[in-house]
Nucleic acid binder design. Structure first.
Length: 801
DNA sequence: CAGTGAGCGAGCTTCCGCTTGACTT
C-alpha cells in the first residue's frame, strides 16, 4: 500500500518514527540481526577464503518473510538501522535476505529520534558502506573461530559443555586474578594518630579535630610520640591555607554507568537494571538504554536548561557537552536520558520510578553549574618536634550547584577518613589546648572483589564487550559455573588503641570484623582450572589487550585499508596450529589435578581434580587393579586448598547412623547440603548438625519433625498412587498437585471444602497446553541450574547400556 | 531436588552482538 518502507532495529523506535513520517511511510522493525552464521559447526568455509555461511535463525523466519513481502509492495525501502558496525551489517543482511538488488533501496541513519533528524536523514541517503560491513564480518567470524575452536579443547581436557570466548574468558580471568591478589595480600598495620584540640573565644568553647601528617609504623613509635605530647603539651597554629575547590557533575548515563549507579544507589543487579530500563524505553519515557555515548541531543540540552532555570534559577544552569572516552565506543545512540526533561516523575512500578528518578537527576545534574567549595587546611605545630605536625581540614560549601540534585557514588570501601566539616574560628600563631590524642592501629585494605557492576566497568575500560552484552556475559560466566556470587563471612581481628587523656596514657585492645563480603564475584574451582589452562595455552587470546588490538584492525578494514579475509587468514594461520597442538598434547595428569598424598589404610594415591560433575577427590588411579573410588568436594572446599586430611574425611560419607521403623538411616552431603535418607525420603540437616557426628536419636527427632511439618502443609488428600490428588499449603497459598503438575485454586474457593470431584474439575479446566509449553521451553533453554543438563546426560548413558 | 564419575559404540555441548518475548508457582 504505502510507497515507502522504513526498517529500523527496534519496534519501539518504529512506533515513534511512524508518527513523524505520515501515511506514505510504513515503518517496520528487524528486531536486531536477521541472519547469523550457521548455528551448527564452524559456520565459516575455511576452504573458500573464510566465506561466512549465513542462515536465518528459526525464530526469525516468519519476521523475514513478512519484511520481504512488505518490501515487495513498497516503491522504496529505507534501511534505517543504527549507524555503527553492527547496524551497517544489519542493513546489508536485510539487503541480501530481502532481495533488494533490483529495488530502489536507500541507506539512512539518524542519531536522534526527532522529526528534523529523520527528515534530514531521508533527504541525505547513501549507499551501504561495504567496508564497515566487512569489519563486522571480521568481528563475527573471529569470535566464532575463537569460541568454537577453543571450547571443544575444554570439553576434552576439562569437562563437557564448558565454553571459552574473547569476552567471557577475559571476564573470568579478571575475577580469578583478583582472587589471587586477595589471597596474596599481606596486611600491614600502622598507627593513625588523631587529636582533639580545644580553644575559647568570646566565652564560647570550640573543638578542633586533627590528624598527624604521618602514620607511625610501630607501637613503640606511637607510644613515644604520645609520651612526647604528654611532656611538652604545647601547640600552636602554624599555618592556615584557604583555597577554592570546584566539583563538576558526572556525564549523563551510558549503559555501563547506569548499571553501576543503579547497583550502588538502588541495589539492582545488572540484568535487573536492564529489564527495568527496557520497560521505561518501551513506554516512551527514556531514550535507548543500550548505548556507549554520553552525548545529549540539542533538544535535550535546551529543555534541561529551561527546566533548571525555572526550578532552581539561572545561576544553576550550565550547558555542557560531554565527550565519550571509553575505548571502542561506537556512539550510534544518545546517552540514556528522559525523553521529556519536563517530567521529573513518571508512573509505573516502584522500580521503574526509582530508576527513572536516577536517570532524570543524572541528566539534569549534568547540565548544572559546578559546586563551589572552600577548603581550609590548618597546620598545628608541636613544640620541640620537627617531623610531625597535626593537620586539620574543613570544607565549606559556598554554592551547591549540581549537588543540589545528584552526587555520584563511588565503589570505594568505606575509608576511615573523617568527614570534612566546618572549622571553628582560628587565627595564625594561636595556642591550642590538647584535650586528647588517640593512636589507633589501622590495617591496609585488601583489594575488593568485583561486583557485577564493577566488573562491567572494568570490561568497558578495557574495551571488551558492548552495552548489549554486559548483562548476558555476566550471566554466562555464572551459568557455566566459572564464578559465583558469594557471601563470605569475615573474621574478627584485634587492634590496639593508645590514648592520651588528662595526662595519662592508656593501652587497650578492640576487635573488628574484617574480610566479610556480600554478593561479590568469586571464582569457582572450575573457573580457576579453566582460566589457568587457557592463560597458559592461549595467552594471546586471554591477553587483556587482545580485543583492543583486533579492534584497531577492524577499524583498518572499515577504512578500506585491509581486506577482512586477510586479517582472518593471518589470525587463523597462527591460531589454529596452537589449537591443534594443545588438543593433541598428552599430559599424564588431568588439568587442574593435585596429588595430596597416600591413603594410610590402603597406601593408594589420594588426588583431587575436576570430574564430570565438578570438583572431586579420588582414592587410587586408573592404573590400579581396582577401580578408584570417588567423592565430591563439599561446597565450602576448594581444589586449590583442600588438605589430605579433609579429603580422607569425605570418604566417610555416606554413613549409616542407625535404624528407625526397621529402615536404615543414611547421612550424606548432597547438592543442597547434608541430609538424612530414610525410607527413600530426604530430610535436610538444619544448621548446627554435623553429618559426621549426628547420632541415631538426633536423626529420629529430625525425621519426626519433618513429618509434622509435612502434615501441616497438607490440607487434604484424595486417591492413592498415580491418582493421588493433594491439596497443599504453598508459599503462594493453597494449591492442588496432581501427577507432578500444580494447579491454581480459583479465587473465592475455600481449599478445605473442596471435594475430589471439584478438584478433578479444576484439573480438567486448567489449560494443560500452557503448562506443557512452559515445560518445553524450560528444557529448550539453557539449564538454569546445571542439573537438567546432567540429568539427561546420565539418563542417556543408562539407556544405551 | 539430594544417587552419579576412567576409555567401543552416537551425538551433544560452544562464540559475540543486534533485538524482544512470555512468564509465575
Amino acid at each position: 500500500m504505502q510507497k515507502n518502507l522504513v526498517i529500523v532495529e527496534s519496534p519501539a523506535k518504529a512506533k515513534t518514527i511512524e508518527k513523524f513520517l505520515g501515511k506514505d511511510f510504513k515503518v517496520m522493525s528487524s528486531y536486531g540481526h536477521i541472519r547469523d552464521l550457521k548455528k551448527k559447526d564452524l559456520g565459516v568455509d575455511l576452504a573458500h577464503n573464510y566465506k561466512p555461511l549465513y542462515e536465518i535463525p528459526a525464530d526469525k523466519k516468519k519476521l523475514v518473510s513478512e519484511l520481504k513481502s512488505a518490501a515487495k509492495d513498497a516503491d522504496i525501502v529505507w534501511l534505517a538501522s543504527d549507524e555503527d558496525r553492527e547496524g551497517e551489517a544489519i542493513s546489508w543482511h536485510l539487503y541480501e535476505a530481502l532481495d533488494l538488488k533490483n529495488k530502489d533501496s536507500k541507506r539512512i541513519a539518524f542519531h536522534e529520534i526527532t522529526k528534523n533528524a529523520i527528515l534530514n536523514a531521508i533527504e541525505n541517503p547513501r549507499e551501504i558502506n561495504k567496508d564497515l560491513v566487512d569489519a563486522q564480518q571480521a568481528r563475527r567470524v573471529l569470535d566464532r573461530i575463537v569460541g568454537f575452536e577453543v571450547s571443544p579443547v575444554l570439553w576434552k581436557k576439562v569437562k563437557p559443555a564448558l565454553s571459552a570466548g574473547r569476552v567471557q574468558s577475559v571476564a573470568v580471568r579478571l575475577i580469578v586474578e583478583r582472587e589471587r591478589e586477595i589471597q596474596d595480600f599481606k596486611t600491614e598495620a600502622a598507627y593513625r594518630i588523631q587529636a582533639i584540640f580545644t580553644k575559647e573565644e568570646n566565652g564560647t568553647k570550640y573543638e578542633l579535630k586533627a590528624e598527624l601528617n604521618k602514620r607511625l609504623k610501630t607501637k613503640a613509635e606511637a607510644l613515644s610520640l604520645l609520651e612526647h605530647l604528654k611532656e611538652t603539651n604545647s601547640y600552636q597554629i602554624d599555618d592556615i591555607v584557604t583555597k577554592p575547590v570546584k566539583k563538576s557533575p558526572a556525564a549523563p548515563f551510558t549503559t555501563s554507568t547506569l548499571q553501576q549507579e543503579a547497583a550502588r544507589k538502588l541495589g539492582f543487579s545488572v540484568s535487573q537494571t536492564m529489564s527495568v530500563a527496557q520497560r521505561l524505553y518501551e513506554s516512551g519515557k527514556i531514550t535507548y538504554m543500550r548505548t556507549d555515548s554520553v552525548n545529549l541531543s540539542s533538544l535535550a540540552i535546551n529543555t534541561s536548561k529551561s527546566e533548571i532555570e525555572s526550578v532552581y534559577g539561572k545561576e544553576y544552569s550550565k550547558v555542557r557537552q560531554f565527550s565519550t572516552k571509553s575505548k571502542g565506543a561506537q556512539e550510534a545512540h544518545e546517552a540514556i536520558r528522559p525523553t521529556y526533561m519536563t517530567d521529573s516523575k513518571v508512573s509505573g512500578s516502584a522500580q521503574e520510578q526509582k530508576l527513572y528518578d536516577l536517570i532524570w537527576k543524572r541528566t539534569i545534574a549534568s547540565q548544572m553549574s559546578d559546586a563551589e567549595l572552600e577548603r581550609t587546611t590548618v597546620t598545628i605545630d608541636i613544640a620541640n618536634e620537627d617531623d610531625f605536625k597535626f593537620v586539620s581540614t574543613g570544607e565549606v560549601l559556598k554554592f551547591d550547584g549540581f549537588l543540589r540534585v545528584y552526587l555520584e557514588d563511588t565503589d570505594d570501601e568505606p575509608a576511615d577518613a573523617d568527614e570534612e566539616s566546618l572549622l571553628p574560628p582560628l587565627h595564625l600563631k594561636e595556642k591550642l589546648e590538647l584535650k586528647e590524642s588517640t593512636a589507633t592501629e589501622r590495617f591496609t585494605q585488601r583489594p575488593p572483589r568485583y561486583t557485577e557492576a564493577s566488573l562491567v566497568r572494568k570490561l568497558e575500560e578495557l574495551g571488551i564487550g558492548r552495552p548489549s552484552t554486559y548483562a548476558p556475559t555476566i550471566s554466562t560466566i555464572q551459568n557455566r559455573e566459572y564464578v559465583e556470587k558469594s557471601n563470605i563471612e569475615g573474621v574478627s581481628r584485634e587492634y590496639n588503641i593508645l590514648q592520651l587523656k588528662k595526662g595519662k596514657i592508656s593501652d587497650s585492645t578492640k576487635t573488628e570484623v574484617t574480610g566479610a563480603d556480600k554478593n561479590k564475584l568469586k571464582p569457582t574451582d572450575i573457573g580457576i582450572v579453566v582460566n589457568d589452562f587457557l592463560t597458559e595455552s592461549f595467552p594471546s587470546i586471554l591477553d587483556y589487550n587482545f580485543t583492543a588490538t583486533v579492534e584497531k584492525q577492524f577499524d583498518n578494514i572499515a577504512e578500506g585499508q585491509e581486506e577482512w579475509t586477510h586479517l582472518i587468514d593471518t589470525f587463523y594461520k597462527s591460531f589454529h596450529p596452537v589449537v591443534d597442538e594443545v588438543m593433541n598434547s598428552h599430559t599424564d595428569h588431568k588439568i587442574g589435578e593435585r596429588i595430596l598424598g597416600t591413603d594410610p589404610k590402603t597406601g593408594k594415591q589420594i588426588s583431587v581434580k575436576i570430574g564430570r560433575f565438578g570438583p572431586m577427590a579420588q582414592i587410587g588411579t586408573q592404573d590400579d587393579e581396582e577401580k578408584p573410588t570417588f567423592a565430591s568436594l563439599q561446597k565450602n572446599q576448594s581444589l586449590t586448598t583442600i588438605t589430605l586430611k579433609e579429603a580422607l574425611k569425605l570418604f566417610e560419607l555416606p554413613r549409616v547412623v542407625g535404624e528407625y521403623e526397621g529402615k536404615e538411616m543414611q547421612v550424606a552431603v548432597g547438592r543442597f547440603g547434608p541430609y538424612i535418607r530414610h525410607n527413600s525420603k530426604f530430610i535436610s540437616l538444619p544448621k548446627g548438625y554435623d553429618p559426621y557426628s549426628i547420632t541415631e536419636e538426633e536423626a529420629i527427632d529430625l525425621i519426626e519433625e519433618k513429618r509434622k511439618k509435612d502434615s501441616e502443609k497438607t490440607i487434604q488428600i484424595f486417591g492413592e498412587g498415580d491418582n493421588e490428588i493433594q491439596i497443599l499449603n504453598g508459599r503462594y497459598g493453597p494449591y492442588i498437585t496432581f501427577q507432578k503438575n500444580n494447579y491454581k485454586i480459583p479465587k473465592g474457593t475455600e481449599a478445605k471444602s473442596l471435594t475430589e470431584e471439584q478438584c478433578l474439575e479444576i484439573i480438567k479446566n486448567t489449560d494443560n497446553t500452557t503448562t506443557k509449553a512452559k515445560r518445553g521451553t524450560k528444557t529448550d533453554k539453557k539449564p538454569a541450574k546445571a542439573t537438567t543438563g546432567k540429568k539427561t546426560q546420565t539418563a542417556k548413558k543408562q539407556t544405551s547400556k
